[in-house]
Every structure is written in C-alpha cells, then in structure tokens.
Simulated scan of single mutants.
Amino acid sequence: MHVLVIEDNPDIVANLFGFLEPLGYTLDVARNGSAGLHLAIQNNYDVIVLDLSLPGLDGVEVCRRLREEHHNPVPILMLTARDTEHDKVTGLSVGADDYLVKPYSLLELDARLKALVRRVRNEQVRHTLTYDEIELDMRTGTAARAGKTIAITPIGYKILLALLRQAPRLVSREALEREVWGDNPPESDALRTHIHALRQSLDKPFERPMLITRAGLGYRLAPANAT
C-alpha cells in the first residue's frame, strides 16, 4: 500500500515509518501542506494520512483543494490533536474520510488505513473489478474482455489490477513498478516487456486498443469505443 504522510512532527513521522514499513507499506512524506498537496496531485496514492495542523496550508485547506479543485478521490485519514466535534465535522465536511485524535494507537491506524482502502475499492463485497469491456476476477486471477477469457501472467495480473483500480486515470511507470515489485524494481526495462505481453492478450484480438501508453508519463485504460 502506497501512503502519503503529510505531517510536520518528525517524531510522529519516524514512528509511522518504524511501524508501517515493516508491515509492507511504502511511505512518502511531506512536512507542510503545500508540499503535500503537490505530491498528492502528482502521484497515485492508495491513501493519505493528513495532519490537521500544518505550516502554510493547514490540513483542512489541503483536503478542500484536493477534492474541490483537483477532484482527487484518494481516501484521506485526518489526524488531529483537537478532540472537538467542530474540528471533526470540519474535516469530514471538506472531504476527509476518517479521522484519528492524537495520541492514537498505531494498530488502530493500520486497521483504519486498510479499511479505507478496501472501502474505496469496494473489495469488501465485490470480488470482480470491471471497466468497460474488461473484467478481472480477484478470487481466481482470471481476466476477460467482452466476455472472452484472456491469458495473463501473474505479473500481468498485478499490472491489470493496478490499472483497473485507477481507470481511466493515468498510472505512472513508477507506481506500476511499485505495485509489481515493491521497493525493489528490476534494473532492466522489465515493465515494458510485461506491458507488451499484456497488450498482446488484452488488445491484439480486438478492433480497438484499451491499454494506452502515454510516452514519458505512464499507462491507462481507455474505453474500447474511445475516439
């Protein structure tokens, strides 16, 4: 899970890295609201941990701009040292999905982050991801397009899953490599090879391509009838 932490307290940041990284999380950190907003816009995150009190832009303004100006649907867990109803209501009203009051349990933070990601992916009640003509069964690892089963490798499955979760948004090369290989991507151009293999199965038998490459930017899924 790729998490953006927007927090100016170095001790809290260190605790989050020390607890979450061994659980398999990949963390990016921003120490102020402006830097956090920039990272959130430029990258695809599974969830954001956002402190309410930040230098420069505070957490409420960061959240508001992400939702209203950039229409970014990433789940946001807001951290606040203020245990008041007003602060909680304000955070939720500008688009935060959940909140924790400091000091908080790291075990509870882990559970809430995972619950937010499951909720936004609708994976608690749904085992199949669909976009336009593509269907991916997460229980069996099988995929189909327009009702026809397509052959995919285990890595092709991971790539397609990442693209479906973001469709039709662009997914950067770095984000795809992180989904497939974690923090240890191969030095060779392996991703391009696997993208080519996935495209052969996903697009070649059909009239219109759905797996689109944006040179220098990344990859995305587009509707089969896109012009």
Rank of each mutant, 00 (worst) to 15 (best):
M210D: 00
G33A: 09
R119A: 05
A30Y: 07
V117C: 11
D203M: 08
P75N: 04
Y25A: 09
A226H: 12
N15A: 13
P205R: 03
T26W: 11
R165P: 01
L109Q: 04
A30L: 09
Q166W: 04
L198C: 10
G95F: 11
A146Y: 01
E123M: 09
R82A: 07
Y99P: 11
L211M: 09
L161D: 10
V60N: 02
D110M: 05
A175L: 00
Y219F: 15
K102N: 02
H2G: 02
A175V: 11
L79F: 13
H38F: 06
D8R: 01
I155A: 00
P10T: 00
N32S: 07
L20V: 11
P209Y: 06
L129F: 09
S34G: 12
T153L: 03
L77P: 12
L202P: 09
M78Q: 10
D11L: 14
V117I: 15
S201Q: 14
T193S: 04
R67Q: 04
L92Y: 08
R208N: 15
L107Y: 02
V180A: 10
D203V: 08
E69P: 02
T84R: 12
A35Q: 14
T80Y: 08
L109I: 03
R199H: 10
A144C: 04
L27Q: 08
T142Q: 06
P103I: 06
T84A: 03
Q124K: 05
E69N: 14
A96W: 06
N72D: 15
L27D: 10
G156A: 13
P73C: 03
A115Q: 07
D110K: 14
R65I: 08
L107F: 09
L170Y: 07
L23Y: 00
A224Q: 12
T84L: 05
G56C: 06
L107V: 15
E177I: 01
L57D: 06
T213S: 13
V125L: 12
L170T: 10
E85R: 13
N43M: 01
N225M: 14
G33D: 08
P22G: 11
D137C: 02
L191A: 03
A215W: 11
E123D: 03
T80H: 04
P73M: 09
L23R: 13
N9F: 04
D8V: 05
R165Q: 13
E174F: 07
N184H: 12
H86A: 14
D110I: 05
G33F: 05
G56A: 09
H86Y: 13
T153D: 12
S34V: 07
T90W: 00
P209F: 10
I212N: 05
T153R: 01
T130M: 10
L129H: 07
R208P: 02
T227A: 07
L136H: 01
L92K: 04
R119S: 08
H86Q: 15
L163A: 07
L191F: 11
P209V: 12
Y131Q: 05
V13R: 11
M210L: 00
D11Y: 03
A96M: 01
F17L: 13
E69A: 14
L217P: 00
D8A: 02
L66F: 01
E21F: 02
P168W: 12
L161S: 06
K148G: 01
L23K: 14
R169F: 03
P186D: 04
